[in-house]
Write a protein that binds this DNA or RNA. Structure first.
Lengths: 234, 234
DNA sequence: CAGCATCCGCTTTGATACTG
DNA sequence: CAGTATCAAAGCGGATGCTG
């Protein structure tokens, strides 16, 4: 049970010594998106992982100070896994990876697993509230599994992992259609022709669809290419 | 030779399908730090990699559009590997990983390999030119292997992977001492007591040592802890 | 020498079955 | 629910050999 290391005195290599094993960063993704979670909920959000691997990774991440095991309050009394402060700081890593991966989402997705809470990534990265003075509004996203809800309020966009009473709009379609629309790669007219259904005021969609940042690039740096590059999908 | 995938329709998972194999992100690190490189130079910057793995990873990254193979101009006429635009966009991922890994650099480093060009990460992440109106100046860093040179000019800090004629100052010590000083975790007085040698005006050091950002955290986000947290080193 | 390919023993992963 | 245990298959690390 020795820990495998690259053996390099470099901060990237040291970070990968902790995070580079298979499944590890996806476990962090789950904890970032869902907050403190039970073992079984983690498994549900990580289709394909072997249970022994999940257990081992959780042990390693606990040892590394990335997450902590906590006993849930009395009524449930089951163990919860949650990120430590150090673990929360991995958000910037996951954000960067998630941005870089968006162009890959244009590939065919038929044989891929999907969980609707994964939509939090594109949504919170690409949507913004362009009319902060308006009252709060919500859009329900239906992509096949559990619905999630985009909450727009006071300049902030958040994703709730459950339905709300009376959403102001409902967006239904395949994950690819919903993601294409929300990331700005697909126009509403075009998406509708493909079968996506949007029920609600178009104004509300315009409120959040800011075309805030180019989909294919990370944070801007001098010397890097401008927006609008061809999206390469291998 | 099938490609292994997580099988998840999530942009983080898709990114890791391309980047998640062992050594892959370190190869990208080398290409980001050194620019177009020969196979042999990549090997030298990746101590510990098996040569067949390097060849295989290069092939995979080429297929994924992250890097390209190019023939060097006539005099040398050897193959060069260089990042594509898509590959350059991984800088934000590597930056985030490198920042997150900095606290891990406080661990004992005796048995770790070191290459001085790896210092580019901490240096370009943590130093800044606080006196942009002053003429350009250079600091040579000597950590045992090849020296590298910090160039401060017109508000920018760059690292050159070779010596320069007459540096304005020279900083010599173990990688840990030099990194500790430059990242703001170690004060000059204290570092000197440990054996670090700085020859040059202290003013020049103050020009770049901005304590620009807290070492242990990534880009600030609301709800995240403030600077100055205890640095946890497992 | 640069740039790989092949072979082999070991480790990690994946799938499934089982347990308190 | 929250994991262990078991075992086959794939991946990795190290050594060595081949080719222009």
């Amino acid at each position: 049970m020795r820990m495998r290391t690259y053996g390099q005195y470099c901060s990237v290599a040291r970070a990968l010594d902790v995070l580079g094993d298979r499944w590890t960063l996806l476990i962090v993704r789950e904890l970032l998106l869902r907050g403190p979670s039970r073992y079984t909920d983690l498994r549900a959000g990580l289709p394909g992982i072997a249970t022994n691997l999940l257990a081992e990774r959780l042990r390693e991440l606990e040892r590394a100070g990335v997450l902590a095991r906590r006993d849930a309050p009395p009524p449930v009394a089951t163990a919860l896994f949650e990120l430590t402060e150090r673990g929360q700081q991995l958000r910037s890593v996951l954000d960067a990876l998630g941005r870089w991966g968006v162009p890959l989402m244009a590939e065919p997705a038929e044989h891929l697993q999907f969980r609707s809470h994964w939509l939090s990534y594109p949504v919170e990265l690409f949507l913004l509230d362009r009319e902060a003075q308006r009252p709060p509004e919500t859009i329900e996203l239906r992509t096949g599994g559990e619905p999630v809800c985009v909450q727009v309020a006071a300049g902030e966009v958040r994703v709730l992992h459950h339905a709300v009473e009376r959403p102001h709009a409902v967006l239904s379609g395949t994950p690819q259609q919903v993601l294409g629309l929300l990331s700005g790669q697909l126009e509403l007219e075009h998406a509708r022709a493909e079968g996506l259904v949007y029920e609600g005021e178009e104004r509300l969609l315009a409120r959040v669809l800011g075309h805030r940042a180019p989909v294919s690039a990370g944070p801007r740096r001098e010397g890097e290419p401008a927006a609008g590059d061809a999206v390469q999908v291998q």
